[in-house]
């Protein structure tokens, strides 16, 4: 009885929070600041730098949304969230938008009453091994010791994968990535498994990166994306289409540098609609017509954001892979701006 009462109160409180925050766009505009749930320690995706300014691939999406909605990419308050607090912070209204390398799963979308509005990074679990081990495929890892973080989905994926391939392995449990890297370096395990993006940055910081190789197999699907609350579809649309605007911009060759020029001179009707030269597209979102132009001008298009934070020019050197545009063999595909 008491428990029911308690849960009821909680649900009522949540609903109240949900109703009152129904107009997230109005709230953000009134506040003048976008509250963005961020990661505090994931190389390349989101972390404060030496000056305490947040940088990264996920952070740039927050900035793009702030630029689209508020006209200024610096008007973001980054709320540090942990793996445990992130979804509650969103549900309780503490943040308007969560961009924290969160995997889109069925239960999160339905049971937690959240909306994953897009996938800004297609990740997946992979393996890092020493080259002199002579292994070229994860299927040859039978009998290996594997460093694995406990209590994560990666642990379950690993068990599934080895079971379905009837292979044996010995798990070496580690507490976090830093611990895993230390153990792997010390030779406590033959392979280290986590998301492929994490493996790339781990490999980049090992003493001799060329002595190590990431195996080609990706054993799980980890679509990471921005999350908003259930029930505020207009706000969800804004985040979704801001993201698609960045993808579309890459496809159309609109960059941070040439966005003004494209707006002035392009004859492509789709570019003109996207950049607000033609049509009234911003109005449908409750924004002005320059929203997409500002989002792109903030940190460039999707490809530029990828390149500055994760790509070949950074020490992480991640290849686009699945995150290339659909026209280049990847999965990034923006619906038409029409």
């Amino acid at each position: 009885m008491n428990k029911t009462l308690f849960l009821g109160t909680l649900a009522a409180g949540a609903m109240l929070a949900g109703i009152a925050a129904a107009g997230t766009l109005d709230d953000v505009k009134a506040r003048g600041v976008l509250n963005c749930g961020a990661n505090t320690g994931l190389t390349g995706f989101g972390a404060p730098d030496a000056n305490g300014d947040y940088q990264g691939f996920d952070v740039d999406l927050c900035k793009a949304v702030a630029a689209a909605v508020l006209g200024d990419q610096s008007k973001v308050k980054y709320v540090p969230t942990t793996g445990e607090t992130r979804f509650t912070a969103l549900a309780s209204g503490e943040v308007d938008l969560l961009v924290r390398n969160s995997t889109w799963t069925f239960s999160r979308d339905t049971d937690l009453k959240l909306d994953f509005v897009a996938v800004n990074y297609y990740d997946g679990q992979g393996f890092l091994v020493r080259k002199d081990l002579g292994v070229t495929s994860a299927k040859e890892l039978g009998g290996a010791t594997i460093c694995i973080q406990t209590g994560t989905t990666t642990e379950l994926n690993l068990a599934d994968y080895f079971k379905s391939n009837s292979l044996e392995y010995t798990p070496v449990t580690v507490v976090d990535d830093a611990d895993a890297q230390r153990q792997f370096l010390a030779g406590a395990c033959d392979a280290f498994t986590t998301d492929a993006s994490g493996l790339a940055s781990a490999r980049a910081t090992l003493p001799n990166p060329d002595d190590y190789v990431v195996l080609p197999e990706i054993i799980s699907k980890e679509p990471l994306g921005p999350v908003v609350r259930h029930g505020d579809n207009n706000w969800g649309d804004i985040v979704r289409w801001t993201y698609y605007a960045l993808v579309e911009a890459e496809e159309k060759g609109i960059t941070k540098a040439n966005v003004e020029e494209m707006a002035a001179s392009s004859t492509d009707p789709e570019v003109r609609r996207l950049l607000g030269v033609e049509g009234e597209q911003g109005k449908f979102l409750g924004l002005d017509n320059d929203w997409a132009k500002r989002a792109i001008a903030a940190n460039g298009n999707y490809g530029e954001i990828f390149e500055t934070n994760l790509g070949e020019s950074t020490p992480i050197k991640l290849a686009r892979g699945l995150n290339a545009l659909w026209s280049q063999g990847g999965l990034q595909y923006a619906p038409p701006f029409r």
Binding site: G41, L42, T43, A178, S201, A202, L206, T314, P315, I316
Partner: peptide
């Protein structure tokens, strides 16, 4: 540690 310079 998230800084690529000090990761590891």
């Amino acid at each position: 540690r998230a800084d690529i310079d000090w990761k590891g």
